[in-house]
Design a binder for these strands. Structure first.
Lengths: 151, 151
DNA sequence: GTTTGACCTCAACATTAGTTGAGGTCTTAG
DNA sequence: CTAAGACCTCAACTAATGTTGAGGTCAAAC
């Protein structure tokens, strides 16, 4: 395998190796509008190098806990030049940062409740704080839960 | 609907209303060995009242972020008397507490990285801390991710 | 110029956590 | 006793995030 001459577009195999994202996942991202590729005459994908940054953004956002749908929306919200620039990244990361703060706060709250409950053994649906967060009835539609956390 | 006379076993509708878990989810939990029910002569479910505690335990564990599989294992690990007692709850909740701590720590770490990156706009797969947690290659099998977090 | 490894598409499957609906039965208030 | 409402089972579907495989094509090294 020859080293890519720095400015040649990347094949899917190269992109996969450099990003740590499997080819099938790259296909998947493309189907879902998260990344794009040019095609060779023979219909093979060729990725611009900034796709690596785009994927970096996607992966980081996933680590923050966001679903691909939200990540795509964020990417789509970019002025029009696609792949996040420094400026975009700053703006978006502040949003992610807020998400993170919220998640951490929720977990800490849960931890406090848990501490209050350890040893008491109550676990009463009526009175236990752990049991009564804010979710009156567990009605929130089908599908896998986002984080297993209360909104 | 008559008030349940305090010691009569619960119908699925009653259990659902009191626990905030839908009947279909209760069926689902039963299929997956998380709860059980007696049956009437006419094959309808009747739940012992301590099933409420059991469900409380399940819901709380889910809020901590555990998959049902783990929750079932925990319940199965109970001496033999099923539904968690005060003692069991203390023991298990310490475990959950550890999970929570780990999760919070992971998120805080991510937040630090994020803070370090805001404004830098690097997002380089090679050098950015955010991009290189510990997951060499993203090989961790199929299915929905647990928390979207690095282990 | 051929062959081998990388790539293509499309469909089906995996996993978690349930929901929805069809078709039929119980229970209980009146 | 009967009708309404609660309950039963079973199969199929949802949603997110991909993976796997079959069947066929490209590209590049020799």
């Amino acid at each position: 395998m020859p080293q890519a001459p720095a400015h040649r577009p990347l094949t899917i195999g190269e992109l996969s190796e450099r990003s740590g994202v499997s080819p099938s996942a790259l296909h998947f991202y493309e189907r879902n509008g998260l990344i794009q590729a040019e095609r060779t005459a023979g219909n093979q994908r060729r990725y611009r190098r900034d796709t690596l940054r785009r994927i970096a953004f996607i992966k980081t956002s996933q680590r923050v806990g966001l679903p691909l749908k939200d990540i795509r929306d964020a990417l789509d919200s970019l002025p029009d030049g696609r792949t996040p620039t420094k400026r975009d990244w700053t703006r978006l990361s502040r949003r992610w940062r807020q998400e993170l703060d919220d998640r951490i706060a929720a977990l800490e709250h849960l931890r406090n409740d848990l501490d209050g409950c350890i040893g008491c053994g109550c676990l009463s649906l009526k009175s236990c704080a752990l049991q009564n967060p804010a979710d009156e009835l567990g009605a929130s539609g089908p599908g896998a839960r986002r984080w297993g956390l209360p909104k």
